[in-house]
Amino acid sequence: MTPFTKLTSRAIPILQGNIDTDTIIPSREMKSTGRTGLADGLFAPWRYIEGRKPNPAFALNQPEYASAQVIAGGANFGCGSSREHAVWALAEWGIRAVIAPSFAPIFAGNCLRNGLLTIALPAEAVAKLAGQAVTIDLAAQTVTCAGETWQFAIGEETKAMLLEGLDAIDLTLKSLPEIESWTARDRAARPWVYLT
């Protein structure tokens, strides 16, 4: 996974509350069983008008955000379906971070596993930085925009994984001896859990 350290980008304003993963990538846009080929369907319901023409009113289609890697979103961002395709589509488009007042828990977890940073900031801060150039410094846990700096909270584990671009499975497999001895003890204590 690509490590996340420091990033400067315009923050694409998509500020509606409760943006759900069906809107980020509708089920009908998930055409294969793989993780790729999804960017074309990103925000399809809002990004396209009749005949799949770009909707000029939607921020993702506006030239000033063409290479932006950050989204400024509304509260409860990423609610709804657990589909990781929403994050894969964002990542394929080039998004590395989403700043919003709050996130749906499964979406935030999916972002982390794909190297995307979710930053929770108060709604006033998100409104201020939306559309502007922002600098995100993960090590310092700061977002800076037009001379103003906000501190954000992040778990130590999450931070380390993103900074170093670690693969969670590889990391966990280092604890395999602990997992195996725990499982052996548990099998004796709760035999009904084990089906072989």
Binding site: R35, I106, G109, N110, I169, L171, T172, I179
Partner: peptide, 22 residues
């Protein structure tokens, strides 16, 4: 609880998930 595909892989491959107390 619901998770994403990567976490499902993680659970199947390792038997555990890495979690912070919610």
């Amino acid at each position: 609880w619901g998770i994403g595909s990567s976490e499902a892989e993680h659970a199947m491959a390792t038997g555990v998930l890495r979690l912070s107390h919610p």
